[in-house]
Design a protein around this nucleic acid. Sequence first.
DNA 1: CACTTATACTTGAAACTTCAAGCACTACCT
DNA 2: AGGTAGTGCTTGAAGTTTCAAGTATAAGTG
Lengths: 164, 164
Amino acid sequence: MHEDEPRWLTDGEQQIWRTYLQATMLLDDHLDRQLQRDAKLPHLYYALLVQLGEAPRRRLRMTELARQAKITRSRLSHAIARLEKNGWVRREDCPSDKRGQNAILTERGAEVLAEAAPGHVAAVRQALFDRLTPEQQKSLGEIMKIVAEGLQPCEAGADLPWLR
Amino acid sequence: MHEDEPRWLTDGEQQIWRTYLQATMLLDDHLDRQLQRDAKLPHLYYALLVQLGEAPRRRLRMTELARQAKITRSRLSHAIARLEKNGWVRREDCPSDKRGQNAILTERGAEVLAEAAPGHVAAVRQALFDRLTPEQQKSLGEIMKIVAEGLQPCEAGADLPWLR
DNA sequence: CACTTATACTTGAAACTTCAAGCACTACCT
DNA sequence: AGGTAGTGCTTGAAGTTTCAAGTATAAGTG
């Protein structure tokens, strides 16, 4: 068993990759900071409230929420525990499966969401959409779709966060 | 002082934004996992070793390293403390400024880096570059450059991680 | 039905990051 | 020179995420 010389990244690829890392790092930091300041919430927690807010009857099974958010169930458990303590979310036993739990957006949670949303959207616009041409936006969408789909193959045995 | 109705994201923009969040989440998770498994190191810590490895004399001032990595100095301090404990990095007082510290990649650190690099590069290729056309790669680079530059304006008073 | 395996979720500890000080030194100002 | 503000870095605690179990229920198998 012999390891071939790996195919290193070309200078151009390196440049792209580093810029990607920097941009995603900075954007994530920027949004986290904006939300932490204005809504006392990290970006991921905000995203969870958004997903719940859009779900029918404002509720979602834990694993389904983890799947949509691309995180582990453990991470979600801790996050929901915190949101529950703050009163933005509550839990409910799943009627059809006694192992299951639903996370439910509370009225207070919906209010927090409504208050935080405008500032958050403005931040996303200002940092991303307002700076890109329509062609670039389209291209970004296509690229990210390819990457996202590539990393969550349908096959069984895939190492996806919400199945760990 | 009156808040106008915010400019919400269009359906198309929402779609792009969500896909972006999912792709970056999955990719970050994927690389973290690969490196944690193969090199016992989170992706960010690996990136720090890379930066040090490329710097002249394998050393960099703390703030400069934080600036390159787009993280806070506090985060860097903790990270370097861990890397130092593992023997991959050591510190040195800066000769010209007694407040300053250099982080230096050790021989052991360089070895770890050399062992981890092929697998990491392969993962980046497989998840990203191998799936994109040359045009898409170029476009991605341009887009990320715009975003990264937009988030680190030259002006004083900008809220950049390494200045916090 | 008993038995095994898989699924759904949680938990506590360890690892990592953020936050708010804090210390030491430098640069600036008079 | 002395005083003041700014820079460079670190630290401990609080918050978040990962990791490795653990509990309970469901589904599959002989």
